[in-house]
Nucleic acid binder design. Structure first.
Lengths: 212, 212, 212, 212
DNA sequence: TACTAACCGAGACGGTACGTCATGTCTTTAG
DNA sequence: CTAAAGACATGACGTACCGTCTCGGTTAGTA
């Protein structure tokens, strides 16, 4: 995640673009938008900074001024697209878990390309700081909410107490990622349910309000 | 280049006879080996065909003659390196499952780079045929064996009967992949055990020989 | 061919040449100079664009940006080297003609390689436009001056009136080229004189101030 | 010029020297023919040995076995195509000279490409021996005959006695070459006449049977 | 009739250069 | 002072030929 973006985002309220020589937010948005647009057509390894600049009607140097690499740009683009969704908190714990898993699916099954995050992660692997920044911006906020939910499930005895909630999240997200990247098994409507079911299969049925 | 010819003629046994107009297996192996060697130093996106050819002491055209792309080459290199391991089949089903999970870990946590398969998959995404070929060469044989084992666990009631064995494998492999690619959470010695435990947590303890 | 340079440099206000960067004349000169330097060592067919770029300390792409082909580059290089020489205009017509023939010789016997123009022409043969441009840049200006002189000789009755001055020039230049390319007969100091003599041999001696 | 060709041509009649298998003349002809055929389509610099071999249905190595280079092959191909024509020897010396010039034109204006000999010469320039061999095979025999004719013209006083016949031939051939290579001036039916006329223009008209 | 050269087609091989493309930096011009 | 335009050195791309080599299959003439 580009530091510049991070540090300049909190700052904009102060002054609208008025003065001549400050950073132009339109330019910034145009670049992000162009990148997302191009990713509908082209897969990540084939996406070039030149094409992004051209599509945004922006000089190449401008892109390099604000983002250190293609990975940083795309990382920001993805982060800006997906909103953090609160998993629901209802009486029906099982339904809540399924909803949470569905959020995972939406996140990692994102756009038509599907392998995007995977490819991005592979590219970011050499720049651990940037990867970490992407993870903490994009991944962590989502996980925090789900972790809470899973903790509730553990507290209520629906999930065994010695299971690490983070491991469950890794398995959910990982399964989606894996299917997208390698399996190409279609991820159907019931996939979230299946993911959840696996963890509940051994638990006493009556605790989940599951009909026998 | 006539120089080489001139200087290599006096050299009688320098190279293995390199069979005539058929493919030279030495060359083939040298390329694969060079690729694997370079991947210890360089991550996949930065690996170039030129460097492979140079490291193998081979003409670039020779590489292109036998592999259509970097992805295809690396796919073969990986496949050739890892041997299919039979998961054990003992009385201790739980131990067997852990051993199987450990195989998954070894496969997807492969070489130092770690993200290799992920990156490869991202690159292969545009060439579904090649991806399919990689999957069926590399992934499927390993899965077949594990699937059998999981089926046994289901049959014996250790895993709930409505769980899809393939889903479990996706989750195992996915969790490893995910941690490697995004989390960078270290994968410890007990990770396999944790992976297995999750699925058994609800099962009656006595069936697994697990001490209460 | 230097169309780009020639036509775009004088262009002051024609197009909003868009803002930004202009061609670097140092680079341009370095390439031309490197090409000429290399041609002292290497004959034209063996001259490579890569070696020119390397010798000029310039990127290959830069060469291709400004010249469409090796032929175009060398054509410009040659053109830029040779200056158009005014043939003299004295009372001694015979001496003037010899001087003009010597200019032809110098032009077509140019650098050590000698066959350069021949080779270039052969290479340019497939790109008639470029050849034409080379001819009109390099060849025509020189011919115009000589043609005038020959016309004077015809007017004065030294050369028969039904002879085409252009044919004479073709024969002069051709003879030089032919000897360079095929004969390898040395072209001595008296060659210009011989060339001229041939056309005057039948003319009345007294008109040329030639001793009988 | 390939020595092999020279030494093996006299070989067919008697007995193919020694044991086993000898050179296949069909192959040899097929290569020459393929080269000439390709030269109708492709200009000399773009002609490749691979394409010749392929077009001749012959292995690349076979071509290299008999000719050391593309230049050698094409030199032989050209030589084999053009037959040495005896210039006529009639009472009409002027007509004879024109006929001789026409032979020069035919030789150097050869095939559709036209610049072929020029290009070949440029390529052969680095291999003087080969060039010499081409010249003595292709050029010299033709010149010998014309030289005789020119000598007759000199002896009869039609051409000035101090003119070098070789120079005249150089000018004839050179003019044709020059027009082909650089000028692209069409060479019309009267060109031979013009070439000859130039040398005769100053001569007494009655000696040439030319009407005043 | 079988042996033994050689020639021959095919094409793999280590290479060089091609001409194109994208990289990331730098400079120039405009607003 | 930012931003557009884009020149630049760099270096990998994937292709085409180079000239050398080995293979396996003819195809002669001995033998």
């Amino acid at each position: 995640m580009p530091d510049q973006a991070a540090t300049s985002k909190p700052q904009p309220k102060r002054k609208p673009p008025s003065s001549g020589n400050r950073r132009n937010p339109h330019t910034h948005k145009a670049v992000i938008k162009a990148a997302l647009e191009l990713l509908k057509t082209v897969h990540y390894p084939a996406l070039t900074i030149e094409s992004i600049a051209a599509a945004a009607g922006v000089g190449k140097a401008t892109v390099y001024r604000w983002w250190p690499s293609k990975g940083a740009l795309v990382a920001e683009a993805i982060s800006s697209t997906l909103t953090v969704e609160d998993p629901p908190d209802t009486d029906d714990l099982r339904a809540d878990l399924i909803a949470a898993a569905e959020i995972s699916i939406r996140n990692y099954a994102y756009p038509s390309s599907g392998v995007l995050i995977t490819a991005l992660a592979a590219d970011l692997a050499e720049d651990p700081e940037l990867l970490q920044s992407f993870v903490s911006t994009f991944v962590q906020p989502r996980r925090a909410l789900v972790r809470k939910l899973l903790q509730r499930a553990i507290d209520e005895g629906v999930i065994a107490p010695d299971v690490d909630p983070d491991l469950i999240m890794d398995m959910w997200a990982g399964a989606v990622m894996y299917r997208r990247a390698l399996n190409h098994t279609p991820i159907g409507n019931t996939f979230a349910e299946e993911l959840v079911e696996v963890f509940l299969s051994g638990a006493p049925a009556h605790k989940l309000g599951k009909s026998p």
